[in-house]
Amino acid sequence: MTQIQFSAPTSVDDAVRQLTDGGSAAKILAGGTDLLVQLRAGYARPTTIVDIKRIPELRQIKAENGGFRVGAAVAGAELSEHAEVKNSWPGVVEGLDLIGSTQIQGRASLGGNLCNASPAADSVPAMIAAAATCTIAGPGGQREANVEDIVTAPGQTSLGEGEFIVSFFLPARPPHSGDAYLRFIPRTEMDIAVVGAGVSLSLDDGGKCVAARLALGAVAPRPLLVEDGAKALIGTMVDDAALAKLSAAASAACNPIDDKRGTIEYRTKVAGVLARRAAEIALTRARAN
């Protein structure tokens, strides 16, 4: 006899109700690429699983206010195949696309990557750099939050009981904007980030940086928005001196762990290098449009 209840609601309200009824031992299921591994390992022991993939809003990508609304359960492969999103937010698509293999891409979602709350989650620095926000549904109705405010510690989020992410909003892109995400891993595919860096920036017609955001993954207990990184670029022509400052700000923000993937010193150094490289790619993209 099965112990775990399962439901696959087709509306946000039903999902909230079922999650709330399930209490603290209820779990959302999106692509399952984290949850099923954790179930198998006995690490997650939910009494209720609520599959959100049959709720239409969770699976849609649509244009909104010049930007895009992306359902929290849209799979990586679906986002990569969306030419307009890829064109506006190549860094975000790169971040999600780096997750796992083709098979994993068939399922892995932005919502799952964020809410699994790994410090090394690949799409999260790109989403933070993009100033993406999310719409959260819960027993008290819907609310908005910035992506950087969701993960609070490894495996922990700021979502309350019965709450889940319905969709993300990627804002409109002014002209001369670009973003990029880079991760450092010891091989070319299928590995966990030693460091991840996401940069988004916008230039004015003369090429001066008017907006910038830098976010880092895998260098602290949670993905970081590095305000000093943005400050290093805004108001400059994104020249060598500005990029050197950005690099220093990235390293200064690090508070990493020492593990088999990288020492504290190594991660701190690589964060600076990677932030600069991501900024250079974002800059090239911004100048091209």
Binding site: G32, L36, D51, S101, Q103, G106, R107
Partner: peptide, 21 residues
Amino acid sequence: GDCGACSVTIDGRLVCACLVL
């Protein structure tokens, strides 16, 4: 989800059957 020996398609998409209920 690491080895792909369980690869199947669901509605035309390649997935790991070990990561689907």
